[in-house]
């Protein structure tokens, strides 16, 4: 691990000012992803800003009947919160589908949104990676890419976003609240928060340098049946090959997908269609697959079919 200066600011604005003053700085919350990357020197921050004591760890009622989740609420606590279990079950389900008990005790709401891809070439500093080293190329395009993205990719990057939680947040139309060093605040819709790779895969979010996430807000509960179905290579503690988050009501349905794209994937236009085949075709329209990951098209359609059958058992006949 490279040497860094360690800072423990007293409040969020000090944290944002420190980050703005030091371009090589990183905030540390749970640290479960950042320290992993620092050990292999994919991340080499000159300054570490410890934000664990900023009081951003509460879950409160939000205006309009929603829920405001502090950036530092741990994944375990969010999944176990009674209001989340009752009104946003898809979020609880997505959270407990991810990582391990130990990691969920540390990992935070904002950190989960900001976690980096597990593309093997992003981790391997001996190989080209446009996300890690802009302009160096993409070893994944012709390499081991079975787990990587099939939609939303570019000629420069096919990395997939690893989060389960973020897929549920996208489904629920969450808003990301931020603070900048000049005191300005923003509310970024989750749909605009994660960027597609395009020609700049190293730019992953809408955050400006030094901008700190303070909370994630959920709108009022949707009701309906909440489902998160994750398919992976082993039964537990593995990243998704494909995951489907769904809220299904008699009058409306919405779906978001994990494991297939550089960001949580949702195609609103597909939600007015009927049946897994039509919805899956619309969601993966324009997909660019490789020999190794083309199976995800079939897997997505079948997983969606299983979700629909689960949500509407009466339609099985």
């Amino acid at each position: 691990m490279r040497p860094f200066s360690y800072h423990r600011p007293a409040d969020p604005i000090e944290a944002a000012r420190l980050a703005a003053a030091h371009p090589g700085a990183r905030f540390i919350a749970g640290g479960t992803n950042l320290l992993d990357l620092m050990k292999v020197q994919v991340e080499t921050p000159s300054h570490i800003i410890d934000i664990n004591h900023l009081g951003l760890d509460r879950i409160e009622k939000a205006d309009g009947g929603g829920l405001r989740i502090g950036a530092l609420v741990r994944n375990t606590d969010l999944a176990a919160d009674k209001r989340v279990r009752e009104d946003y079950a898809v979020l609880s389900r997505a959270l407990v589908a991810g990582a391990s008990g130990q990691l969920r005790n540390k990992a935070t709401t904002a950190g989960n949104l900001l976690q980096r891809t597990r593309c093997p070439y992003f981790y391997d500093t001996n190989r080209p990676c446009n996300k890690r080293k802009p302009g160096s190329g993409c070893a994944a395009l012709g390499g081991y890419n079975r787990g990587l993205a099939i939609v939303g990719t570019s000629d420069h990057c096919i990395a997939s976003h690893p989060s389960d939680m973020a897929v549920a947040m996208r489904l629920l139309d969450a808003t990301v609240e931020t603070l900048r060093s000049d005191g300005a605040t923003r509310a970024i819709p989750i749909a605009d928060f994660h960027k597609l790779p395009g020609k700049a895969p190293h730019v992953e979010t809408a955050l400006a340098p030094g901008e700190i996430v303070t909370a994630v807000t959920l709108p009022a509960p949707l009701g309906g049946r909440h489902i998160y179905r994750k398919v992976r290579d082993r039964a537990s503690y593995a990243f998704a090959l494909v995951s489907v988050a769904a809220v299904i009501r008699p009058d409306a349905q919405r779906f978001a997908f994990g494991g297939i794209a550089p960001r949580p994937w949702r195609v609103e236009a597909a939600e007015s269609l009927d049946g897994a085949d039509a919805i899956a075709a619309s969601v993966t329209d324009g997909a660019r697959t490789t020999e190794q990951n083309a199976f995800k098209l079939t897997l997505l359609r079948r997983t969606l079919g299983a979700v629909l059958a689960d949500a509407r058992p009466e339609s099985r006949a």
Binding site: R2, P3, F4, S5, Y6, H7, R8, P9, A10, D11, E14, L18, H22, G24, S46, H47
Partner: peptide, 10 residues
């Protein structure tokens, strides 16, 4: 408001 240690930017 800070507690810190270590080197300047490397």
């Amino acid at each position: 408001a800070l507690s810190t240690t270590g080197t300047a930017d490397a």
